[in-house]
Simulated assay, not measured.
Amino acid sequence: MFNALVVRKDDAGKTAAAVEQLDVGQLPEAEVTVAVEYSTLNYKDGLCIGPGGGLVRNYPHVPGIDFAGTVEASDDPRYAPGDKVVLTGWRVGEAHWGGYSQKARVKADWLVPLPEGLDTRQAMAVGTAGFTAMLAVMALEDHGLSPGQDPVLVTGASGGVGSVATAILAQLGHEVAAVTGRPESGDYLRDLGATKIVAREDLAETVKRPLEAETWAGCIDAVGGAMLARVLGQMKYGTSVAAVGLAGGAALPATVVPFLLRGVNLLGIDSVMQPFDNRERAWQRIARDLPLSKLDSMIRPATLSDLPKLGGDILKGQIRGRVLVDVNA
């Protein structure tokens, strides 16, 4: 028997989440069984813990879109008992039972060996948010971003993706301008390496001018909506925006002018279906380029029993940094 956070739906369609004891025989069929050590809390997790957001197909359900742990059993030659592994994406925690559990059974194709230099706690302090941040940094680099240019803008900087993106970019030698709607987060973001704090209201308003002064050498955007439209008009010639989220809305009230007159690139970042080679590359870069000493300042520890409340909090935008879930606490 083992503990897991189980979400159930009643006949009226109302969902409720609670920690329950499950049997190994209840785990879904797949090749690799993992003793989970840590997971995290992401926006999607908040949806799956609560109303589902259209992500959960069947109930009862175990959420948790990422986890790190140790292989217990494997029918695939790529993994053996004792191997340390990390999982993000592949709709685990949505369509497939996830990491809010002391045990998980998943497909071997979904796993990545834990890179040297990271332990399972650090890997989940990074988690899906940090993995996404590194994918965004890599995409900007692939499109010409290098240190020593003008500031790189990070929107939603006090959230999970933004926090890790700020720390990585600063470690790589970039000047980082961090956008936040929480004035009290200024010291936190400076500690992560931000050199400039930009108030959210300075970028939240849509303007009629399709182009403004060329200001940013790159941008990692977790907000979308009107803010992304505004930022596109402020990018320097030939630079790129990596879009990772839509906290400010899915609509994009923009024109094509920044693309046509300044050669701006809008790069979509998906962390769910990334191929293995790019996943491995991203995790290797995280182990190398993320200042691990900054992780503790980002972390809020939690247990399985804390998650029903925290899931609601993250949907309300009330979570700063990273929630690290010790599933065995």
Rank of each mutant, 00 (worst) to 15 (best):
residue 5 L to N: 08
residue 6 V to T: 11
residue 8 R to V: 10
residue 11 D to L: 03
residue 16 A to F: 08
residue 18 A to N: 10
residue 19 V to N: 15
residue 24 V to M: 10
residue 32 V to L: 05
residue 43 Y to H: 14
residue 48 C to N: 14
residue 52 G to K: 05
residue 54 G to F: 10
residue 59 Y to L: 06
residue 69 G to L: 05
residue 71 V to K: 09
residue 78 R to Y: 04
residue 87 L to V: 13
residue 100 Y to P: 13
residue 102 Q to I: 08
residue 111 L to I: 05
residue 116 E to M: 03
residue 118 L to F: 13
residue 118 L to K: 10
residue 120 T to D: 10
residue 122 Q to V: 07
residue 123 A to C: 04
residue 125 A to L: 09
residue 125 A to V: 12
residue 127 G to L: 12
residue 134 M to C: 06
residue 135 L to Y: 06
residue 136 A to M: 02
residue 139 A to N: 00
residue 142 D to W: 00
residue 145 L to H: 02
residue 148 G to I: 04
residue 150 D to P: 00
residue 155 T to S: 15
residue 159 G to L: 08
residue 169 L to I: 12
residue 180 T to V: 04
residue 191 D to A: 15
residue 208 K to H: 14
residue 209 R to T: 15
residue 210 P to G: 09
residue 215 T to V: 07
residue 217 A to T: 03
residue 219 C to M: 00
residue 219 C to G: 04
residue 226 A to E: 13
residue 227 M to Y: 05
residue 228 L to V: 09
residue 228 L to T: 09
residue 231 V to S: 00
residue 247 A to T: 11
residue 252 L to W: 08
residue 252 L to N: 05
residue 253 P to D: 14
residue 257 V to D: 01
residue 265 N to T: 14
residue 266 L to P: 10
residue 266 L to R: 06
residue 279 R to A: 00
residue 280 E to L: 04
residue 281 R to P: 00
residue 285 R to I: 04
residue 286 I to M: 02
residue 292 L to P: 11
residue 292 L to Q: 15
residue 298 M to T: 14
residue 305 S to V: 10
residue 307 L to S: 07
residue 313 D to C: 12
residue 316 K to S: 10
residue 317 G to C: 04
residue 320 R to Q: 14
